[in-house]
Design a protein around this nucleic acid. Structure first.
Length: 424
RNA sequence: GGAGAGAUGGCCGAGUGGUCGAUGGCGCUCGCCUGGAAAGCGGGUAUGCCCCCAAAGGGCAUCAAGGGUUCGAAUCCCUUUCUCUCCGCCA
């Protein structure tokens, strides 16, 4: 959520930023926000003045009663009662104005960083780097969904039977590979200084608002209406919300947390071609890294997180590229996002396996996550997160890129201690 | 799920209708004292919003949350949430 200070004091860059994100009606929305805020302040001032008078009267009455000046006390009571009626109306005005302002602010996306390229679609994303050589497969090489079936690693039909499409059942070495990857990613995160968290995988409504899933994107989450809870779409939600309503001590920063969770996404309306096999699922596993940083350190931290992700992909010996997302392709809450994609040799496609973002103060403002500056002023912190990494497409690439003419799959060395086997 | 008790500032804890944003202690911090430290002494130490260019200063709100009674509520009443104890159920 943008702050009123941003909207008022950086009007031109904010407007340009919203336009870069292709937010329709940006100019009118910003003007409306300022107008609502003006109304809010006016109502607040009026109400405060009124309350100040009422408080003064209440104090007087005590004295008058003691002094036995009953008539004057009664007169003061009458005035105080009248003030109270007025205050009720003002409180109502203030409440509705604040609510309208809040609702409006919820609809405004974050302002992108100056380095974000313009553009609307994934084609406009900028390739920052590409690392590793694209593998040449032998004749008759299979896409991962055929490999999975032939080696009985993952059973999609069984998943459909017990739950529904997009909920795979991992079996044998397929299951073991999941566990190996999770442990590998967590160990790597720990080595990079992240504190391990195992959070709940359902969250309440307040947490959904904190990280920006709510309002608006509830259609993307599985819901438990009887209890008002949501299945998490990513560990970012519970781990970032650890710091909701939090005033951080400066010397404790940064916070660096990593956590494994299953992730649940309804993916309403996004099924079609190109989503076979592991390319898109309703439930998948992911290790997420999350940082809370002082504003001046957040962009170096973003680079550090990207380096961490790149290191994982190199150890897994997967060719990858890093993209800087364009204004139209980045998420609502992000100021700058890098996507990492691995090359899936049999599909001959790049698959997104990680998304690393700096949200600047956008989430912190919703979360009320702050610190004090040296001179005692309150300051919003910056939040960042990144996948490190999401499993399914990593598995797809590992299977496709490392398949041998004899039908086996060779696993990268880094995983051997975790799998207990070198090939499948 | 049933019965009871409770929720106060970073922490502990006092406060049962009137100058209480809240005694006191701990912690933290600044100063004095000291060769230095400890002890001791003195000061400071919540959050949000608003007025103000800013600072200084001031106002309002907040004692789990929401509502009510009252001129006035941490204190009385109602609702909700959470915590603890006992019982029930249970990986």
């Amino acid at each position: 959520m943008l702050t009123l200070t941003q909207i008022r004091e950086q009007a031109a860059p904010v407007l340009a930023g919203l336009q870069k994100k292709h937010f329709a009606g940006a100019e009118a929305a910003l003007a409306e926000a300022v107008a609502l805020d003006d109304r809010r302040k006016a109502a607040q001032l009026e109400l405060d003045t009124l309350n100040a008078r009422a408080n003064a009267l209440a104090k007087e009455i005590g004295g008058l009663m003691k002094a036995g000046q009953k008539d004057q006390a009664e007169a003061a009571k009458a005035e105080s009662s009248a003030l109270k009626t007025q205050a009720k109306d003002l409180e109502e005005t203030l409440r509705t104005t604040e609510q309208a302002l809040q609702q409006l602010l919820y609809t405004l996306p974050n302002v992108p960083h100056p380095s974000v390229p313009p553009g609307r679609t994934p084609d406009d994303n900028e390739v920052v780097e590409q690392v590793g050589t694209l593998p040449e497969l032998f004749n008759g090489a299979e896409p991962h969904w055929d490999i999975i079936k032939r080696l009985d690693l993952i059973d999609f039909e069984l998943g459909t039977k017990i739950t529904g499409a997009g909920f795979p059942v991992y079996k044998g070495k397929g299951a073991r590979l999941q566990r190996a990857l999770i442990n590998f990613f967590l160990d790597q995160a720990q080595a990079a200084g992240y504190h391990e968290i195992l959070p709940p995988i359902v969250v309440n409504e307040a947490s959904g608002y904190g990280t920006g899933q709510l309002p608006d994107k509830e259609g993307q989450m599985y819901q438990i209406p009887v209890d008002g809870l949501y299945l998490i779409p990513t560990a970012e939600v519970p781990i970032t919300n650890l710091y909701r309503d939090h005033l951080a001590k400066r010397e404790d920063l940064p916070y660096k947390n990593a956590g494994y969770t299953p992730c649940f996404r309804r993916e309403a309306g996004s099924w079609g071609a190109h989503v076979r096999g592991l390319n898109r699922l309703h439930q998948f596993d992911k290790v997420e890294i999350v940082q809370v940083q002082l504003p001046e350190n957040s962009y170096p931290a973003l680079e550090q997180m990207c380096a961490h992700v790149a290191g994982l992909l190199q150890q897994l010996e997967l060719p990858y590229r890093r993209l800087r997302l364009c204004g139209g392709d980045m998420s609502f809450a992000s100021a700058l996002t890098y996507d990492f994609e691995v090359f899936s040799a049999a599909q001959k496609r790049w698959l997104e396996v990680s998304s690393v973002s700096n949200f600047e103060t956008f989430q912190a403002n919703r979360l009320k996550l702050r610190t004090k500056t040296e001179d005692g002023k309150t300051q919003l912190l910056h939040t960042l997160n990144g996948s490190a990494l999401a499993l399914p497409r990593i598995v797809a690439a590992l299977l496709e890129n490392n398949q041998q003419p004899n039908g086996h799959i060779h696993l990268p060395k880094a995983l051997w201690p975790y799998t207990g086997f070198e090939k499948i």
